[in-house]
C-alpha cells in the first residue's frame, strides 16, 4: 500500500533538483538528456501506478504514449485544430485506449495479462505503422509547442521547456500519489494482494482495474504529448513493445511499487545509455546485464533496496 514517507519526499525533491540543476548549468545536450529522462520517468510512474500497485504488468504503455502523441499530431497538424484542444483529444484517446485494454483484460492476470497487453499495444503500433496519411513508418513532423506567450512564457526556449516538462513530471507524481492514497488506490492495492477476497468484500474489481488503467493512460498520454512537442516529430517507434519493455526495466531498476523509484530508474538508465554509447556502440548488452542483475539481486531496485535498508535501520533504532 502506498505511503508518501519522508524518505520518498526527500528523494523526489532531490531528483527534481538534480534534473533542474543539470539542465540549467549544462549544455544544449544536457537539456535534451533531461527531457528524455523526464518523459521516460512520467511513463515509468504511469506503469508503476498499475504494475507496482495494481499488479497489472502492462507491455502497452508505449502504445498509450504513442496514441496520445499521434492524436495530438493528427488534430493539430493534419486537421488544424488548436493546440490545447488537440492535446485534449490526444489525452482522451490514450485514456480510452488504456481503459478499453483494462476493461477487456480485467479478468485475466499473470503471463496472460502481459501477453494481452502486448497484443493490444502491437495492434496500435501496426495501425500507425501502416497509416500512410499519418506518415506510416516514416513518422510525421510539424507538431508545435503550446503558446504561453500570454503569460510571458516562451516554451520554444530549451531551458523553459525543460522546466515546463519538469512541472508536468511533478504534477504526474502528485496525481499518482493522491490517487494511490485514496479509497480507490487502497482498493487497487487490495486487488494486487488478493483479488478474490476483494470481490468477496463486494468490490467490483473489474471497475477498479479499468479505472486504474485509464488513469495510467492519462499519465502516459501526458508523456506522449510532451514527446511530440519536444522533438516536433513522432514515429511508430513510440508504440513498439520493446519500448514498453524498457519502461518496465526503468520501473524495476528504480524500485517497483515505490512511485519515486521510477524517476531514479529513468535518470540512471538514460545517463547510463549516454555515457556508455560515448565509448561503445554496444549499450544493449550493458542494459540487459543491469536488468538481469536488478531482478536476480532481489528485484527491489535501487530506491526500493535503499528504502528497505533504511526501514530496517529505523526499526533497529526503535527496538
Amino acid at each position: 500500500m502506498f505511503y508518501q514517507s519522508p524518505l520518498r519526499t526527500i528523494t523526489l525533491i532531490a531528483a527534481l533538483c538534480f534534473l533542474a540543476i543539470y539542465a540549467s548549468f549544462g549544455s544544449y545536450f544536457a537539456r535534451e538528456i533531461v527531457i528524455e529522462i523526464i518523459i521516460l520517468a512520467i511513463l515509468a510512474i504511469s506503469l508503476d501506478f498499475c504494475a507496482g500497485f495494481g499488479g497489472m504488468v502492462s507491455l502497452c504503455h508505449g502504445a498509450m504514449m504513442g496514441i496520445a502523441a499521434y492524436f495530438y499530431g493528427m488534430m493539430s497538424v493534419k486537421l488544424g485544430w488548436g493546440l490545447t484542444a488537440s492535446a485534449g483529444i490526444g489525452l482522451a484517446a490514450a485514456v480510452i485506449f488504456a481503459g478499453c485494454v483494462g476493461w477487456v483484460t480485467a479478468r485475466i492476470s499473470g503471463i496472460f495479462f502481459i501477453m494481452a497487453t502486448l497484443a493490444f499495444g502491437q495492434m496500435a503500433y501496426t495501425i500507425f505503422f501502416r497509416w500512410r496519411w499519418l506518415g506510416g513508418d516514416d513518422g510525421m513532423g510539424g507538431m508545435r509547442r503550446f503558446d504561453l506567450s500570454a503569460w510571458g512564457v516562451n516554451l520554444n526556449d530549451g531551458l523553459i521547456f525543460t522546466f515546463w516538462a519538469l512541472g508536468i513530471l511533478l504534477l504526474v507524481y502528485i496525481l499518482s500519489a493522491l490517487l494511490l492514497r485514496s479509497g480507490f488506490g487502497r482498493s487497487l492495492s487490495g486487488i494486487h494482494a488478493n483479488e478474490g477476497r476483494m470481490q468477496a468484500l463486494g468490490i467490483n474489481t473489474a471497475t477498479i482495474r479499468t479505472q486504474a488503467m485509464a488513469f495510467s493512460g492519462l499519465m502516459a498520454g501526458l508523456a506522449g504529448i510532451l514527446a511530440a512537442q519536444h522533438t516536433f516529430y513522432i514515429s511508430p517507434e513510440l508504440l513498439v513493445w520493446t519500448l514498453s519493455g524498457e519502461v518496465l526495466l526503468v520501473v524495476i531498476l528504480g524500485g517497483i511499487g515505490t512511485l519515486v523509484g521510477p524517476i531514479i530508474g529513468a535518470i540512471l538508465l538514460v545517463l547510463m545509455k549516454h555515457s556508455i554509447s560515448a565509448y561503445t556502440d554496444y549499450w544493449h548488452i550493458f542494459v540487459g546485464l543491469v536488468l538481469i542483475f536488478a531482478v536476480l539481486s532481489g528485484g527491489r531496485g535501487i530506491f526500493g533496496q535503499g528504502e528497505y535498508w533504511w526501514q530496517k535501520y529505523m526499526r533497529g533504532q526503535h527496538a
Binding site: 493522491l178 490517487l179 492514497r181 485514496s182 479509497g183 480507490f184 487502497r186 482498493s187 476483494m198 468484500l201 463486494g202 468490490i203 471497475t207 477498479i208
Partner: peptide, 12 residues
C-alpha cells in the same frame, strides 16, 4: 468496502 469508501478518488 462496507462503508462505501472503496472507490473514492482523492480521499484517504
Amino acid at each position: 468496502a462496507a462503508l462505501g469508501k472503496s472507490g473514492k478518488l482523492f480521499r484517504d
